[in-house]
Design a protein around this nucleic acid. Structure first.
Length: 878
RNA sequence: GGGUGAUUAGCUCAGUUGGCUAGAGCGUCUGAUUUACACUCAGAAGGUCGGGGGUUCGAGCCCCUCAUCACCCACCA
């Protein structure tokens, strides 16, 4: 025997993966003439190692890819990694900090070099981990967001948007992170609730509230709602003199509807430089904006004596000063408010006005379905018109809500790691300035002008990931030819034409806005096509206690690399699939892993048994059903194949997994193989094994391929390349007969067990059916014998119409009699319920005919059963 | 403030457009067995599907409402 007793995953997995990779089975072939199926792998951030979340998405996508291959499609699953600008930058800066230095000391060039080394190592580790997970990706098409061709796509997109007026540079309020010294987008911010002091100050005739007195130095506008009757006597634009922190100032009255009259006193002063709402008020009325806090979080000279002090240092002193001037009215110690922090790096956000690059989401210049739409409108249109389907559908509502709140997208970042903004500036000696926006740096040197200098900023990571579905399909060779326009480049790229739009995008719902929406935005704009037809959104994997896995609780984190060597990749994959549903989080459970390690071993042992039976048989190629069990298992196989195909097409992974589990373990192992021990059909066993291996392969690729390779029934083939074929025909009536055998066996087992007897014989009165199947019944029910007699006494089987009884003394059967009496009550209740249903005229009138017919059949069956149970009880009583 | 999801067996979860007596894994209990597998087999117990109301011949599933938990978005000076 070639297969050892138990499946030890770690002995095989590496070799199996190497075999697949060498075979080229995962390499897409656009010229194959087959229907194409393509998925872009969401490129993991190059920040170290893969997590259990990555393991989940690799498993889901791998099942999709392998399933498509089994249907005979040409599959491209394109792998890649993301440079993850902000996330990586934060890691490097932290490292520098630990080494007692910072990015300014090491300089931009050295910093980027360090980062390159770091991501290079991360990348290698992560690609190995993807292989360990069994990812059937096309490694010949591996991509990286900073590849030259992808970088070109980024620049091309930027330039195209700039020329269309969709990208502009402007002084706008942004979310400034003083810690990482960059701004971040609205979506990268999270809020934490904090208790802080809320101060009320006297401001001329008004009372104003604030949690941030240190921003108030420049406040010279006092704003109230135009309809607020309390302040009707103050006119818009009216000037009043008020005593303030550093002496008297002239304040101007502004009426604006942004003020909530019910909040506090209904009056506020504004700090346009450091608050979005204030900024917008200032914009509406053309007011001055003044910076109070610098980009490191310290006060500027406007604060006079407090200049240069940090926020934390200055705040109490400022309050003290206002108090001493008699301007402090009260302090609320228990004020709850939300503090904005940067998700990466956790710096506290200080809104600041900065000169930044933005994508205009409202300008209507994108040709879409014969109209000119804005980016925002295109985003809405593709979902509303069902060009793109979100799975589950409920995320559409969340998606629309996000778009409704969408503001212009700030795409420039002040970090060093990433795609440089493709814009250059130069001055001439008279101080005039020129700007150049282009895919490649400008090369001209004009008389009287200084050299061109590139904009120091880099682009938001999501700007480059937004192009991922198509930038990865651009031919890298062609991309070096800058005489080609982007349109021509796409047109001539074979992969782009074959694989775009991609079939499905599989990713976590947590990056629906960051990534999915932005891919739609950028791709519809540049290519005129949607990036994908469907979006399958998976949930988070929570720790065993139901809480999020978090670095602050290291014990909560499950590392796939700890699990794989011990339990095997297949066990991990199936544990992740068990009970998974789109959009819902799942809780980690060790019992799932253990259950699936056992399942892999079960498959192994089924193979091992069949291997032994098949031995050196040569005619295993012509399987035909003979016994009732043969027909039954083939009928079930047929059903399971159809079901798993449609279910997988509809992304019902958990259901497919579960029905395969039941089929293999219960039907094949516990019934069919056991029955085959009484009546063997060697070619059919071999056929069945092969079919099972193919069916489970997408879920458990390693154990199935290992079995296939070890058995080596078809020299030189690999299971990963096998397609699903038609099932051998079977007779349904015979299959149904086998279920009757199952009833006989189950009932016999049950009685024997309940009465704790052994060495029992089953008698029947020359019943041909039982006679013909006596070997299977005897073996599987654990009987001494199955014999035909003219008459006799014993405990009768009630679940079958065949007259048969077990050779057990009726006096032993009191326990069983109670059981029978209970079953009589059950059956009578059931019949009553069903008859009531039939008596209901509306039911008969409205329910589908087959449902009504089913009910009638049920009643008949129940009555037959009831009669036979009653007869048995009678026998006991007499 | 607006929105979403969850609530089904002791635990973790499935349950497709409403239609057989609501399922699985783990756990529990009772037995069996040593050449496919103790990573096994046979069997059992365990659920008024969060509460209330409604629609329907029929509701775990649809509608209303309440409760608890989790999450998302917006954000107030």
């Amino acid at each position: 025997m070639k297969l050892p007793k138990a499946y030890e995953a770690s002995n095989y997995e590496k070799d199996i993966y190497a075999l697949w990779e060498k075979s080229g089975a995962f390499v897409a072939n656009p010229d194959s003439g087959k229907e194409h199926f393509s998925i872009s792998m969401p490129p993991p951030n190059e920040t170290g190692t893969l997590s259990i979340g990555h393991a989940l998405f690799i498993t889901l996508q791998d099942i999709m890819a392998r399933h498509a291959r089994q249907k005979g499609m040409d599959v491209l699953w394109l792998p890649g990694t993301d440079h993850a600008a902000l996330a990586v930058n934060a890691i490097i800066e932290k490292k520098l900090e630990q080494e007692g230095t910072n990015k300014h000391e090491v300089g931009r060039e050295k910093f980027i070099e360090m980062t390159r080394d770091f991501v290079g190592n991360s990348r290698e580790t992560m690609l190995e981990q993807m292989r360990a997970m069994g990812a059937s990706t096309d490694w010949t098409r591996l991509r990286y967001t900073l590849d030259e061709a992808l970088n070109r796509c980024v620049n091309e997109t930027f330039v195209k948007m700039y020329n269309d007026g969709l990208i502009y540079r402007g002084h706008r309020i942004v979310n400034w992170d003083p810690k990482l010294e960059t701004n971040v987008s609205d979506d990268e911010i999270t809020y934490i609730e904090e208790k802080s002091k809320f101060y009320t100050f006297k401001y001329g005739p008004f009372e104003i509230g604030t949690a941030r007195p240190e921003t108030k130095f420049g406040d010279k506008y006092v704003v109230m709602h135009p309809d607020d009757k309390r302040y009707a006597k103050y006119k818009h634009g009216e000037k009043i003199e008020v005593e303030w922190i550093n002496g008297p100032i002239i304040a101007t009255i502004i009426k604006d509807e942004a003020v909530d009259p019910k909040f506090g006193t209904g009056v506020m002063t504004i700090t346009p430089w450091h608050s979005l709402v204030d900024f917008e008020i200032a914009e509406r009325h053309g007011l001055d904006k003044e910076q109070i806090i610098d980009f490191h979080g310290n006060l500027l000279p406007i604060a006079e004596e407090f200049s240069g002090q940090s926020i934390e240092e200055a705040r109490p002193k400022i309050v003290e000063k206002l108090k001493s001037k008699g301007l402090l009215i009260k302090i609320d110690e228990n004020y709850l408010h939300n503090v904005a922090i940067n998700e990466r790096g956790k710096g506290i956000i200080e809104p600041q006005i900065r000169l930044q690059w933005f994508v205009d989401v409202k300008k209507q210049v994108i040709p879409w379905k014969g109209k000119k739409l804005s980016l925002k409108e295109v985003l809405q249109s593709v979902i509303r018109d069902e060009d793109i389907e979100l799975i589950p559908k409920r995320f559409e509502k969340i998606y629309f809500n996000w778009i409704d709140n969408l503001r212009d997208w700030c795409i420039s970042r002040q970090i060093w790691w990433g795609h440089r903004v493709p814009v250059w500036y130069r001055n001439d000696t008279d101080g005039r300035e020129e700007t150049y926006v282009g895919v490649k740096p400008p090369t001209d040197h004009s008389e009287g002008w200084h050299e061109w200098e590139q904009d120091p900023d880099t682009l938001d990571t999501w700007f480059s990931s937004a192009l991922w579905t198509w930038s990865t399909l651009v031919d890298p060779e062609l991309a070096q030819d800058y005489s080609l326009s982007l349109d021509e480049l796409l047109k001539r790229s074979k992969d782009y034409n074959a694989y775009h739009p991609t079939s499905v995008m599989e990713t976590g719902w947590d990056i629906l806005f960051f990534w999915v929406a932005r891919m739609i935005l950028a791709t519809t704009y540049v290519t005129g096509e949607i990036p994908f037809k469907q979006v399958y959104l998976h949930g988070l994997i929570r720790a065993e206690d139901g809480k999020k896995m978090s670095k602050s609780r290291p014990e909560s984190i499950i590392d796939p690399l700890d699990i794989i060597p011990k339990y095997g990749t297949d066990a991990l994959r199936m544990a992740l699939i068990m009970g998974v549903t789109p959009g819902n989080d799942q809780t980690w459970g060790w019992s799932k892993i253990e259950a699936n390690q056992r399942f892999a071993n079960k498959i192994w042992n089924i193979a091992r048994y069949i291997e032994g039976v098949v031995g050196d048989s040569t005619d295993i190629k012509k399987p035909q059903p003979v016994s009732l069990a043969d027909h039954w298992i083939l009928t079930n196989l047929q059903r399971i194949k159809e079901k798993s195909t449609t279910d997988l097409d509809n992304y019902r992974f958990s259901e497919v997994y579960e029905s395969l589990y039941q089929f293999i373990w219960n039907d094949v192992a516990d019934w069919y193989i056991e029955a085959s021990k009484a009546e063997v059909n060697i070619p059919l066993l071999a056929y069945l094994l092969e079919e099972i291996l193919v069916l489970v392969h997408p879920f458990a690729p390693f154990v199935t391929e290992t079995i296939w390779q070890t058995l080596n029934w078809e020299e030189g083939t690999i299971l990963a390349s096998k397609t699903l074929g038609p099932t051998i025909g079977s007779d349904e009536a015979k299959a149904k007969d086998f279920t009757e055998i199952q009833s006989i066996i189950s009932e016999a087992r049950y009685i024997i067990k309940a009465l704790k007897v052994s060495g029992v014989t089953l008698y029947h009165t020359s019943d041909e059916f039982i006679e013909a199947n006596s070997a299977v019944i005897k073996r599987m029910a654990g009987l001494q014998a199955v014999e035909s007699v003219k008459e006799g006494k014993g405990i009768h089987l009630t679940n079958t119409k065949r007259i048969s009884w077990l050779d057990i003394d009726e006096s032993m059967a009191n326990t069983y009699k109670t059981e029978l009496l209970n079953r009589i009550i059950d059956q009578e209740n059931m019949i009553k319920k069903l008859e009531l249903r039939l008596q209901n005229k509306n039911y008969v009138k409205n329910a589908p005919k087959n449902v009504v017919k089913q009910t009638k059949n049920q009643i008949e069956d129940a009555k037959t059963l009831l009669d036979s149970i009653k007869a048995e009880v009678e026998r006991f009583s007499s």
